[in-house]
Design a protein around this nucleic acid. Structure first.
Lengths: 196, 196
DNA sequence: CACTCATTTCTGTATTAACGGAAATATTTT
DNA sequence: AAAATATTTCCGTTAATACAGAAATGAGTG
């Protein structure tokens, strides 16, 4: 009898992300997934929450819903804004900042891709350029080393450029293109074996 | 005078990744970069070392060169083999296992892409399917929530499929396609503004 | 201009992941 | 089959990151 009451009070205390089981499940999975691919849990959870939210939310609501510290929410929101996955929106008659997520999944994907380019490829290219600078001044360096570094650099440049081009394509076109995946690629695939 | 001697002895003790400054720099940067995008430093360093190496190396050599523990090398090698970024090769007259890296950068990129699909997209799809399963059994669920989850699922399915198609394209064709980046995309870009 | 409420920065703590070393297991050679 | 050597698994330590709470800063209002 007592045990039950305690349990209930704990549950309400631990927070109601709920109101919907599926919603909660999604947030939990999404947060966990984030951890797997390099985004921290709080950030991913907040993103999931806003993605499923119908109306803008303020930091405190988020903090309460998810049961994570206010300060943590603040930093996470900043990061999400940096990725342009959420944005601030004013709410009339409320001086607190509110946030909404980009809910168009295609747009989301493009924002993430743009972020990755900027944060992964670009620095890699800079580092590589530096290495090659050093390599040039070095005599007696095995030519194979130089060669491999150069190949890597070339590749990154091409990939970067391609990536950039892709991000410039209007969403609707890209969507169309990807939906037609089969047709687009089958042409390229038939010639030549996988190994070459 | 004494200071110099000490310094030299320390340097040799700290290990000679060197033999080439550029090589060392590359390995260090690569390792660090790995950390940035989710691969741990040891794994990335070992990969860099093998990528620049002319001949196969065994675990002990790697351990010595990089100054990381033998056990750590063992695990890292296993992970790299899992990504198919390196492979075991027999060396005549030596019973120890030796390893060489995939040195074709295009091939490398495709292996990484394949790994990412497998380790990031596939689990996400599984998780999402589960969420939607839950959602279906739930009455009184805000239809918007359901809607958003579905959109996400659809997107993932398309992206996954596209990704798979891309990985099936023979390397040479893909290479060609990407080098022509400009031409391929300019056609798509001209119609429609970025916002749509 | 002070007071209240919102937000961010700072700092200590906790959780998690990386790593090294030792012990155990497997493999080859004699 | 025993000895030697190579490899992996296990476990304790260390380092990095995430996080909460407090303090400080900033913004809007009476």
């Amino acid at each position: 009898m007592w045990a039950e009451i305690t349990e209930i009070s704990v549950m309400t205390e631990i927070k109601d992300i709920s109101e919907s089981e599926a919603r909660q499940q999604f947030i939990l999975y999404w947060g966990d997934m984030g951890g797997q691919w390099g985004v921290n849990r709080s950030v991913a959870q907040i993103h999931a929450l806003l993605f499923l939210s119908v109306s803008p939310m303020n930091a405190e609501q988020i903090s309460d819903q998810l049961g994570i510290a206010r300060s943590n929410v603040s930093n996470s929101l900043k990061e999400l804004v940096g990725w342009k996955l959420i944005k601030r929106v004013p709410v009339s008659g409320d001086r607190r900042e509110h946030f909404v997520a980009e809910v168009d999944v295609w747009e989301m994907a493009m924002r993430i891709a743009a972020g990755r380019k900027e944060r992964e490829i670009d620095p890699a290219m800079a580092a590589l350029a530096e290495c090659l600078e050093t390599a040039k001044t070095e005599q007696g360096l095995n030519p194979v080393v130089m060669q491999r570094m150069k190949e890597m650099q070339d590749f990154l440049a091409i990939a970067d450029h391609w990536y950039g081009q892709m991000l410039g394509v209007p969403k609707s076109k890209l969507q169309m293109l990807m939906k037609m995946g089969n047709k687009v690629f089958s042409m390229l695939k038939i010639t030549g074996k996988k190994s070459e």
